[in-house]
Every structure is written in C-alpha cells, then in structure tokens.
C-alpha cells in the first residue's frame, strides 16, 4: 500500500475524499488521547475519555463500555492498540446504522 505517497498528499486536504478525511479524523482522535506512556497505544482510561467526550451521541451504542474497559486490565497501564480502538469505534458506527 502506498502509504508514503498518501502521507504526502495528506497535507493537501482539498484532494482527500470524505472517506479519507473521516479516516484521518479517527486516527487523529486516537493520537490526541494516546498521551500517557507509549503513545502508540491508549490506556483503558484514555479510551473511556475519548468515547465519552468525542462520541456523546453514539456512546450509548458501545454496549457495556465500562465492563469492556474493566476487562482490558489496569486502567492506567494496559495498552490498547489502534486495532482494538478501531473495533470499539466500529460498534458505535454500527449503532448509527441501527438508528436509521
């Protein structure tokens, strides 16, 4: 996949499609909240803040968020990679489909 190329283009947001811009926003949110320790990962607490603050209307669809977060381990130490974050966000996204 031509990631180098895409990153170069990234600066020119005029050229990006809505879908690409949307993906960037999801990535940016991950980075904005992943501030403690290893910055490639979110801690469970950071994930909770992200979902509560950034998905106020959709967080109700992330079913049993608190339970899920408890299962992830130490709230300030456990590491969630991008893929895990993506899966949880996916549940919220499914929620917007159901809502229609």
């Amino acid at each position: 996949m031509g990631q180098c190329h895409c990153h170069k283009k990234r600066k020119d947001s005029q050229e990006l499609t809505d879908v690409e811009r949307a993906i960037e926003i999801v990535i940016n949110n991950f980075h904005r909240y992943a501030v403690k320790g290893r910055k490639e990962c979110l801690t469970p607490n950071e994930l909770r803040d992200l979902v509560v603050q950034q998905l106020p209307q959709l967080s109700q669809h992330v079913c049993s968020l608190d339970e899920k977060i408890e299962c992830l381990g130490d709230p300030d130490e456990a590491k969630l990679e991008f893929g895990e974050y993506w899966a949880i966000i996916g549940e919220a996204a499914k929620g917007c489909r159901v809502k229609k």
Partner: peptide, 10 residues
C-alpha cells in the same frame, strides 16, 4: 462531534 461525523461518513 467531528468523530461522530467521521463514523457517519464511513
């Protein structure tokens, strides 16, 4: 929010 918009787009 911006993130909610993004999910809706996807």
């Amino acid at each position: 929010s911006e993130l909610e918009w993004a999910l809706q787009v996807l």
